[in-house]
Design a protein around this nucleic acid. Structure first.
Lengths: 220, 220
DNA sequence: GCCGAACCGTAACGTACGGTACGTTCCTTG
DNA sequence: CAAGGAACGTACCGTACGTTACGGTTCGGC
């Protein structure tokens, strides 16, 4: 069973970094690296070896294997903290700049080794409902992204640059335009040639298309 | 090792249905159902039990566990055969109808239990390169879809209804507009409310948006 | 310098499951 | 009807790994 730290987070919420000691964070980092290399095949002994700690410690700290995986995923999630958007500049240019920047960041993230590894084990585990890794990853990936972008969209709308009824639908469209087939291809082991340059180009194209669809004026 | 039927298919290609006997197809169906229920946790004994066959038979027919999984995925892939598009009607209305129909079909597929299960195990396996389930699923999912849609796009372009330079890019945009966050959410265990009605609505919206982006005339 | 707690390293246990062997049954074929 | 093969059921083996237990070591506090 899990050690029941103070105020166990709900469903997909990330644990605050302070919930772990420095040493524990080191262990989690080791587990994370191992997860990138081995995927769901990582073994408790392997983690212990890599982290130079004993298995007993792993079990004391994280309860069991699922607990370790969950903690690892939450630990990674807690590392990429959301940068809030400043609602200052709302002219069309900086709006486009915001969107494009988010698109770039996001593509970079989902193309990263750790993101792919994390999503892979989360998808595997989502099948047999042992834990809620799927919910956690979703909460800190897809949904965090939405929460981060909604203010931008709303500001754009308020300023008269964007026209939509439902921000959620608009967001999902943007999501689709940016991601397209990239994530599923990466998860399935394909390499859709996401170089830095390609990412920048994709982000720009997605932003252009999104503005064409949801821009208040015609800028086709 | 695999039984080396005549002309083992390359990489992601599906084996023709005739490569399996009726009994073998039954066994593969059983494996498929079990895969939907248990995901990658399905056991050889479990499949044998479900299919009322012996484990020895499984090993004789499919070589090993990976062989069985591969065969199962290919078997499922061979069941959803591609309906070729008729290049006859190329007016704008029937073009839109084609696109919308494809979008509907595809959404229905990726929301199905079997598709989710298949993609889940393929994603898991894509991590550790034991087999090429990822490539197979990709080939029969994402890439098959492209092959099926490209002619429609080309016909639409030739008829002057669509304007794009690269059919691949256009396809990927359509892919994104239709799928959005649906597939990853499903794989991660979320349920994005894909009722029959919602699917129809999404398909219509995606088609509308795609035509807005790639339509030769303004039909915003 | 001593004590206890936390932690390391390792050995050991139990189990689940992939893979194999073998006796039996059933079906085909001559 | 006899012979042979294919497939069923089951028991078995080996191993990998999750989990537990235990002795040795470090370290902060008295």
């Amino acid at each position: 069973m899990n050690e029941a730290k103070t105020g166990e987070p709900k469903a997909g919420e990330a644990k605050a970094s302070e919930d772990w000691t420095a040493r524990q964070r080191d262990v989690l980092d080791a587990a994370l690296r191992l997860m990138v290399e081995e995927g769901d095949n990582l073994t408790m002994a392997g983690v212990a070896r890599r982290a130079s700690c004993s298995k007993e410690t792993l079990y004391k700290w994280f309860g069991d294997r699922d607990g370790l995986l969950t903690a690892t995923v939450q630990w990674q999630a807690s590392k990429v903290r959301v940068v809030p958007v400043d609602p200052g500049k709302v002219d069309l240019a900086s709006l486009a700049e915001s969107l494009e920047g988010y698109a770039r960041d996001w593509l970079k993230v989902i193309a990263s080794d750790t993101s792919i590894a994390l999503n892979r084990v989360a998808v595997s585990h989502a099948g047999s409902g042992k834990d809620n890794l799927g919910a956690i990853v979703l909460e800190n990936g897809r949904f965090a992204l939405a929460k981060r972008l909604k203010p931008v969209l709303d500001a754009g709308k308020k300023a008269g640059h964007l026209a939509f009824e439902d921000a959620e639908t608009a967001f999902r469209t943007f999501f689709g335009l940016v991601g397209r087939d990239v994530q599923i291809r990466l998860l399935l082991g394909d390499w859709p040639g996401l170089t830095e340059a390609a990412i920048a180009e994709d982000a720009a194209r997605a932003t252009r298309q999104f503005l064409a669809l949801y821009g208040a004026r015609k800028e086709q």
